[in-house]
Design a protein around this nucleic acid. Structure first.
Length: 662
RNA sequence: GCCCCCCUAGCUCAGUCGGUAGAGCGUUUCCAUGGUAAGGAAAAGGUCACCGGUUCGAUUCCGGUGGGGGGCUCCA
């Protein structure tokens, strides 16, 4: 036995050559994997002279991934225990958890998941060691002959498919064996690793759901059954994760839409087509009114365009060529047929509009334009219809009919930089006014394979977007090659109250449409120039933004958006008349107030208003009536007594005017 | 579009191993006049999503359609 000189967490140490990282970190339970010379490795890895070893905690991002990937292995083993005829796909870690794809004899049901989960608990309890074993292609193919999907992965290893990187990838082909108490393998899986030292290092996990997924993510491949699970460094973290999910479910805008009587999706109308009820209508109108006002201040002009157009317009814009699947099919008008059914007169095809830009372009092109008019900013709450695939429709956030807060800016090249800069500031400030505070930006750049336009134009526009983004002092994420073919884009991602990110606004430069529509203006020297066109939507769609805000506020809208701002509650019926006169004053002050004159008891009325998430309750009984005052009860349960009516009105009006949350 | 699951009163859900159904909340009426999150009683309310098949008989079993959910793929 000889000595090795190595570095452990920055300290030089000397160890015998039979020592492995698992021994070095034996004292620290949270160290479950390590980096050796910068590479993530198992704790069972052999050490060499001069190795630089760092412990990696189970709570670090890398540690969590290893934990979750190892849990995925445990799940796969359990599945094959319970359903021996199941073939394995892949099983990577994902945000908050992991999944594993299987090809079972029949799809899994919830009872199956319980069985699998208890088999997993047993495996965890067994404390099976994960052992890495290097193999080669021929041996692996032989050993895994009964696993066709694994064999396929070995086959594509040379191609180094991204999605297969957890299983293969890397320089060597490796198999991980799970060793039982007697040191003999009980289960094996093709895997790159690394893994936890043993299954007993899995502190807390839970299987979440099963669903289907295409093998290797392609519609053309067979459908596999995917089981999702989650795993955490402690039971407490698992519990708080599950609580977060429960909280998200409570905030689900589809559920709140029913509970608060905001909107619905009547089956009679069709999938993905919403109606807004009176209360939802108030919220929506408040959102729109404020947006309209701010756009006015910002120099936008308001236009309107029809929901229908002849096919020629979308042929000109190109939408029919590349987007017809996403459009509702055409209506054929004025077609005349002969008695034998042949066409006598060809009809005219009309389409529902999936976008507003072509209409705005026609407005721009309706007469000659001078550089003196630019920039021209045309704004419309434009309702569009897109035939989304049935499986993707989701409440208000992914609908088939929705209204964009859409605007198109036509400017000169010289104006572009300033325009983008002020636009982004405008967008972010407006989102802040609606109560979103936490943003990051994403810049999508050109994909050279699939794009139109001059290199210099792309470079210039991308740089202008980048500058505008940097000026905001927000985190900027680069989405290399992610732009649509017609121009670069910035999107604003916003975090909601429980930390979920939503893509909100997009700002996009377009090199395609000005050409297709031959848009021009007269420049100072009298020449005809092509304007730069910028597409932008702040909400994306009003419906979607409505859904996001509903979830962000959990239905407890700030007073300026709340459908009912105040509920007036008499302590007893005798005081209803007095409160009715107070209510009149509030109404005269422009406050949305309801008097609850039902024969419920006061306690019940408070409960009802509370459940409807009304920001203020106005309560009055004997004492208040005598003094000509009211009590204010706030949504959080706090209370202010004996407030003069005029003072109450002032307080509530200013909260509304300032768009404060209470 | 694909895979799996679901659709029972306005809402949330029981239930019927095939013999046409029940609760709570809500609604209506009555009683109660109550100072900070559910006072009491009675009543009304259902082609068990729709269409077809099997059956003496279907809400229940089978098939199709519509709608919804969870994923996958997609989102100009």
């Amino acid at each position: 036995m000889s000595q090795l000189s190595i570095t452990v967490d920055g300290r030089a140490v000397s160890v015998t050559d039979d020592q492995r990282p698992t021994h070095l970190f034996a004292e620290s339970k949270e160290i479950v994997v390590c980096k050796i010379n910068g590479e993530l490795k198992d704790l069972w890895t052999d050490l060499k002279e001069g190795d630089v070893v760092e412990g990696v905690s189970i709570s670090s991002p890398e540690g969590l991934s290893v934990l979750r990937h190892s849990t995925a292995h445990v799940m796969a083993q359990a599945v094959q225990q319970v359903f021996s005829q199941t073939r394995l796909g892949i099983g990577p870690p994902i945000t908050d958890g992991f999944y594993y794809d299987f090809d079972p004899e029949r799809p899994f049901n919830p009872e199956d998941l319980e069985k699998i989960e208890s088999a997993m608990r047993k495996i965890v309890k067994d404390g099976q060691r994960f052992r890495r074993r290097v193999t080669n292609e021929a041996d692996a193919l032989k050993e895994l002959a009964h696993e066709p999907y694994k064999c396929e992965l070995i086959g594509i290893k040379s191609g180094a498919g991204e999605e297969a990187s957890v299983e293969v990838g890397g320089a060597e082909l490796t198999i991980y064996d799970n060793l039982g108490r007697d040191g003999q393998p009980v289960w094996s899986d093709l895997c790159r690793g690394p893994h936890l030292p043993s299954t007993k290092h899995i502190p807390a996990f839970k299987l979440m759901r099963s669903a289907a997924a295409y093998w290797r993510g392609s519609e053309k491949n067979p459908m596999l059954q995917r089981i999702y699970g989650t795993a955490w460094p402690s039971q407490e973290e698992l519990t708080s994760y599950l609580e977060l999910l429960a909280e998200a479910e409570k905030r689900d805008h589809r559920r709140l839409g029913t509970e608060l009587d905001l909107f619905s999706f009547p089956e009679e109308i069709g999938s993905g087509l919403a109606v807004f009820h009176p209360k939802g209508g108030i919220v929506r109108r408040a959102m729109e009114d404020y947006s309209r006002k701010r756009h006015e201040d910002e120099g936008y002009e308001f236009v309107y365009s029809p929901h229908l157009t002849k096919a020629a317009l979308f042929e000109k814009s190109g939408h029919l060529q590349w987007y017809s699947e996403g459009m509702y099919p055409p209506m054929v008008m004025d077609e005349e047929l002969h008695a034998d059914g042949t066409i006598k007169r060809a009809g005219q095809q009309y389409y529902m509009k999936p976008m507003n830009c072509p209409f705005h372009n026609l407005i721009f092109a309706s007469r000659g334009r001078s550089y003196r008019e630019l920039p021209i900013r045309l704004f419309e709450f434009g309702t569009v219809y897109r035939y989304e695939k049935s499986g993707v429709i989701h409440g208000l956030t992914r609908a088939r009919g929705f209204t964009q807060d859409d605007a198109h800016i036509y400017c000169t090249k010289d104006q572009m930089v300033g325009e983008l800069d002020s636009l982004l500031t405008f967008v972010l400030n407006l989102l802040r006014d609606y109560g979103l505070e936490d943003f990051y930006l994403e810049l999508s750049t050109r994909n050279p394979e699939k794009s139109v336009g001059e290199d210099s134009d792309w470079a210039e526009a991308t740089e202008a977007l980048r500058k505008a983004a940097v000026a905001q002092n927000l985190e900027l994420v680069l989405d290399e090659g992610g732009a649509a073919f017609y121009g670069p884009k910035i999107s604003v991602q916003a975090k909601d109250a429980i930390g979920r990110t939503w893509q909100m606004s997009t700002i996009q430069v377009d090199f395609q449409l000005p050409q297709r529509f031959e848009l021009e203006y007269s420049a100072t020297d009298g020449t005809r120039q092509r304007p730069v066109m910028i597409h932008r939507a702040l909400f994306g769609s009003i419906e979607r933004f409505f859904g996001v805000l509903t979830e962000h506020y959990s239905g407890a809208f700030p007073p300026w958006l709340a459908p009912v701002q105040v509920t007036a509650i008499p302590v007893a019926e005798a005081f209803a008349d007095y409160l009715a006169s107070v209510v009149k004053e509030f109404k005269a002050a422009g406050i949305r107030i309801d008097l609850d004159a039902s024969d419920d008891r006061m306690q019940k009325k408070i409960r009802n208003a509370q459940m409807q998430k009304v920001p203020y309750m106005l309560i009055a009984g004997e004492e208040d009536q005598q003094a000509g005052k009211v009590s204010i009860r706030y949504r959080n349960g706090e209370q202010k007594n004996s407030i003069a009516v005029a003072d109450a009105i002032t307080e509530i009006r200013s909260a509304i005017a300032d768009r404060k949350q209470v």
